[in-house]
C-alpha cells in the first residue's frame, strides 16, 4: 500500500510540474525559422512533395541512418538473447497446425500485403508513408506467413541477406552523394525531375525503398525470433 501511495505522490508531483507547461502553452501563429526553411526550400532544392519525407531522408538523413542502426542493433540483440541456450534438437510439444481458412487466406493475402508495403515506400516522397511504414506492412505480411505455417522455419539467411545488402546500398548511396553532390546522403545524385511525379526527388525514392527493405527485414527477424521461442 505504501508503494502505491509513494507512486501516486510522485505522479502528482510530476503532474504539478507538467500543468504549467500545459496552461502556459500558446500555439505558434507562424512557422519557426527551421520549419519555414523546410517549407520554402524543399520543393526547389529536393523536389519532394512530402516534406516530412524530405526531412527524414535528406535534411536529417544521418539521423535516419543512426535510427536504422539502432533498430538493427535491437533486432540483433533480440536474436542473440533468444538464441542463447536454445537447443537445436528441441523435443517440445508439436505445434498445432493452423486452420484451413488461415492457410488458404494467407496464400492469397500475403503477396497483396507485401505489394501494398512496396507501394507505400516507393511513393514515400509523394504521399504519406515511406520506408518505415512500408517496412512494417511487409513485416505484417511475414507475420501472416508465420501464423499460417507455425512449423516452418523462416529463411533467416534470406532476411539477413536482404537486411545487410540494403544497409550496404544505403551507405553506398550516402557516399555517392558525398562524391557527386553536396554531401553525405545528398539526394541530387539523380535528376530532381518535376514535383509530384514518381521518378522525381532524386535519390529519395531509392533511399526510402532501401530503408523500407531494411526495416521490413529487421521487424521480420524480430517477429521470427520471438515466434520460434519454446513454450516454457
Amino acid at each position: 500500500m505504501i508503494r502505491r501511495a509513494a507512486a501516486l505522490a510522485l505522479i502528482a508531483a510530476l503532474g504539478a510540474l507538467l500543468l504549467p507547461l500545459l496552461l502556459g502553452y500558446h500555439p505558434d501563429e507562424a512557422l519557426n525559422l527551421t520549419a519555414c526553411y523546410y517549407a520554402e526550400r524543399t520543393a526547389a532544392d529536393l523536389g519532394a512533395a512530402n516534406i516530412v519525407t524530405a526531412i527524414v531522408v535528406t535534411y536529417r538523413g544521418l539521423d535516419t541512418l543512426g535510427e536504422v542502426t539502432v533498430l538493427f542493433l535491437s533486432a540483433a540483440v533480440v536474436g542473440l538473447v533468444l538464441a542463447r541456450g536454445r537447443t537445436a534438437t528441441t523435443g517440445g510439444r508439436p505445434r498445432l497446425p493452423a486452420g484451413e481458412l488461415l492457410t488458404t487466406g494467407s496464400r492469397l493475402l500475403a503477396p497483396l500485403i507485401m505489394l501494398l508495403g512496396i507501394y507505400i515506400f516507393v511513393n514515400g516522397h509523394l504521399t504519406p508513408g515511406g520506408g518505415f511504414q512500408g517496412g512494417a506492412v511487409i513485416a505484417s505480411g511475414v507475420l501472416l506467413l508465420l501464423l499460417a505455417e507455425p512449423g516452418r522455419r523462416l529463411g533467416h539467411r534470406v532476411i539477413a541477406l536482404v537486411e545487410s545488402l540494403s544497409g550496404l546500398a544505403y551507405v553506398a548511396i550516402g557516399v555517392a552523394g558525398l562524391v557527386y553532390a553536396g554531401g553525405f546522403l545528398d539526394n541530387r545524385i539523380l535528376p530532381i525531375g518535376t514535383l509530384g511525379e514518381l521518378a522525381s526527388a532524386g535519390a529519395i525514392p531509392v533511399i526510402y525503398s532501401l530503408i523500407g527493405l531494411k526495416v521490413g527485414a529487421e521487424f521480420s527477424s524480430m517477429l521470427a525470433n520471438l515466434s520460434e521461442t519454446e513454450e516454457l
Binding site: 504519406p128 511504414q133 512494417a136 505484417s140 507475420l143 517477429l223
Partner: peptide
C-alpha cells in the same frame, strides 16, 4: 500528421501487440 498516423497504426498498434 498523416505520416505519423500511418506509422503508429502499422507499428505501434499492429506489430507491438503481436510481439
Amino acid at each position: 500528421s498523416p505520416d505519423v498516423a500511418m506509422t503508429e497504426a502499422a507499428i505501434g498498434s499492429g506489430l507491438t501487440t503481436f510481439l
